[in-house]
Lab assay of single mutants.
Amino acid sequence: ELSWTAEAEKMLGKVPFFVRKKVRKNTDNYAREIGEPVVTADVFRKAKEHLG
Results as ranks from 00 to 15, higher is better:
Thr40Gly: 03
Glu1Ala: 12
Glu9Cys: 09
Arg32Thr: 06
Ala47Ser: 06
Ala31Tyr: 00
Thr40Arg: 02
Val15Tyr: 15
Phe17Ser: 10
Ser3Met: 14
Val38Ala: 06
Tyr30Leu: 03
Lys10Gln: 13
Pro37Glu: 11
Phe18Cys: 13
Pro37Arg: 10
Gly13Ser: 15
Phe18Met: 11
Pro16Ser: 06
Trp4Asp: 00
Asn29Ser: 12
Glu33Leu: 13
Gly13Trp: 11
Pro37Phe: 12
Leu2Gly: 04
Asn26Leu: 15
Pro37Asp: 10
Glu36Arg: 05
Val23Gly: 01
Lys48Pro: 03
Met11Asp: 04
Ala47Ile: 05
Ala41Asn: 04
Asn29Gln: 14
Ile34Thr: 10
Met11Phe: 05
Gly13Asn: 14
Leu51Gln: 10
Ala41Phe: 04
Ala41Arg: 07
Gly13Tyr: 12
Pro37Gly: 09
Pro37Trp: 12
Glu36Thr: 08
Lys25Asn: 12
Asn26Gln: 15
Glu1Phe: 11
Thr40Ala: 02
Tyr30Val: 03
Asp28Met: 09
Leu51Trp: 15
Asn26Asp: 15
Val15Pro: 01
Leu12Tyr: 03
Phe17Arg: 10
Val23Gln: 05
Phe17Glu: 11
Asn29Trp: 10
Thr27Met: 08
Val43Met: 04
Ala8Ile: 00
His50Glu: 08
Glu7Ala: 09
Lys48Ser: 14
Met11Glu: 09
Lys21Phe: 10
Asn26Glu: 15
Met11Ile: 06
Ser3Gly: 09
Glu36Ala: 15
Phe44Pro: 01
Glu7Arg: 06
Thr27Tyr: 10
Gly52His: 13
Asp28Tyr: 03
Leu51Met: 14
Lys46His: 07
Gly35Asp: 05
Glu7Tyr: 04
Glu36Gln: 08
Leu12Ser: 01
Pro16Gln: 05
Gly52Lys: 12
Glu49Asn: 09
Glu36Gly: 02
Gly35Thr: 03
His50Cys: 06
Arg24Gly: 02
Ala31Met: 02
Tyr30Phe: 09
Ala41Pro: 07
Ala8Phe: 00
Pro16Arg: 04
His50Asp: 06
Phe18Ile: 11
Ser3Lys: 14
Val23Ala: 06
Pro16Ala: 06
Thr27Leu: 06
His50Thr: 08
Val38Gly: 03
His50Trp: 13
Glu33Arg: 10
Glu7Leu: 06
Ile34Leu: 10
Leu12Lys: 01
Leu51Tyr: 15
Ile34Cys: 07
Ala6Arg: 10
Glu33Ser: 15
Arg32Ser: 05
Lys14Arg: 11
Phe18Glu: 13
Lys48Gly: 09
Glu1Ile: 10
Val43Gly: 02
Ser3Pro: 15
Phe18Leu: 12
Gly35Tyr: 04
Pro16Asp: 06
Arg24Asp: 00
Val15Asp: 03
Asp28Leu: 05
Arg45Lys: 11
Glu9Phe: 09
Lys14His: 09
Asp28Asn: 10
Val23Glu: 03
Ala41Glu: 07
Phe17Thr: 08
Ala6Ile: 12
Arg24Pro: 00
Val23Phe: 08
Thr27His: 02
Gly52Met: 14
Glu49Tyr: 10
Thr27Ser: 04
Glu1Lys: 10
Val43Tyr: 01
Val38Tyr: 07
Phe18Asp: 11
Thr5Arg: 02
Val23Trp: 10
Glu7Val: 05
Thr5Tyr: 02
Asp42Arg: 07
Lys21Cys: 09
Thr5Cys: 03
Lys10Trp: 10
His50Asn: 09
Glu49Cys: 07
Asn26Ser: 11
Val38Thr: 08
Gly52Arg: 11
Gly52Asp: 11
Thr5Gly: 03
Gly35Leu: 05
Thr40Trp: 01
Asp42Ile: 07
Arg20Val: 04
Glu7Phe: 04
Gly52Val: 13
Val39Pro: 01
Arg32Glu: 04
